[in-house]
């Protein structure tokens, strides 16, 4: 719900040649969405804090020296934005390819086949094949939890699980360990998930996970559908309480 006392102005800007107006406290992504222009994003999930990490949502802003991440960049008066220029469309495809090449994403045997954000993005961005060499790391699956499984082979390090656990559940069981290409999401002190003393077993991480990296035990190929209705609900309810 918009706060009537909030300090914002209405600004006009141009997205893909179309003049639109937006509130000055909105991000480019929100403004575009309201005008039915879809900008792809992966680390972005409405209800969680944006971190501008996946870079899929980068857009061109006329006069700006660099591409800007639309999930964390606020609109401004007179901005001229191109969300689907040839350059950014190509970059998006390469970013997706990087994810496919980084870990071992084998869609045909994945629990999330057909319900996967990464797969959907690949389709949306016209990714037909991966021209980068596959890096095929060897990563161990953690099935120690009695209800859930963590398969790092399918993790894209979007940190949605980390954020939902910290921001919404308040347990902060997940975090990222290591750095660079060696980075992994882990529970507590890197021990098996089933041994975590902080995990409440709420399953929020499983349902915000864009891929089959976190899933419910007992689900077979293509059976894991994620339910995320709780996220906007919880967010709104908390705002009301405040």
């Amino acid at each position: 719900m918009p706060d009537a006392t909030a300090l914002y102005q209405v600004v006009t800007l141009v997205i893909n040649g179309v003049e639109i107006s937006a509130r000055s406290d909105q991000t480019i992504m929100q403004a575009a969405e309201e005008n039915e222009i879809e900008i792809p994003g992966l680390c972005h999930l409405t209800g969680l804090k944006d971190i501008g990490a996946c870079r899929l949502c980068v857009v061109e802003v006329k006069g700006a020296p660099r591409l800007v991440p639309s999930c964390v960049t606020r609109v401004a008066e007179g901005m001229e934005i191109f969300t689907h220029s040839e350059r950014v469309v190509n970059y998006r495809r390469t970013i997706l390819e990087m994810l496919y090449a980084e870990r071992n994403h084998v869609c045909s045997v994945c629990v999330s086949n057909g319900h996967c954000d990464l797969q959907a993005l690949a389709l949306k961005c016209g990714l037909e094949y991966v021209h980068l060499p596959y890096m095929t790391p060897r990563l161990k699956i953690d099935a120690s939890h009695d209800r859930f499984v963590y398969d790092p082979n399918r993790c894209v390090l979007c940190t949605r699980c980390v954020r939902v656990c910290d921001e919404i559940e308040g347990a902060h069981t997940w975090d990222v360990m290591g750095r660079g290409i060696e980075a992994r999401v882990v529970t507590d002190l890197g021990q098996p998930w089933g041994e975590s003393e902080t995990c409440t077993g709420c399953g929020k991480c499983v349902h915000v996970c864009p891929t089959g990296a976190l899933f419910e035990k007992g689900k077979s190929v293509a059976e894991m559908e994620k339910r995320r209705q709780f996220l906007p609900y919880l967010t709104v309810m908390r705002e009301v309480k405040r």
């Binding site: 496919y100 084998v106 869609c107 045909s108 596959y134 095929t136 990563l139």
Partner: peptide, 19 residues
């Protein structure tokens, strides 16, 4: 024409690659 995931991505045959 590369037909199917095995031809396009190496898919299931590629699952041995990490080992």
């Amino acid at each position: 024409v590369a037909l199917g995931d095995c031809a396009v991505t190496s898919n299931v045959p590629g699952m041995r690659n990490p080992f």
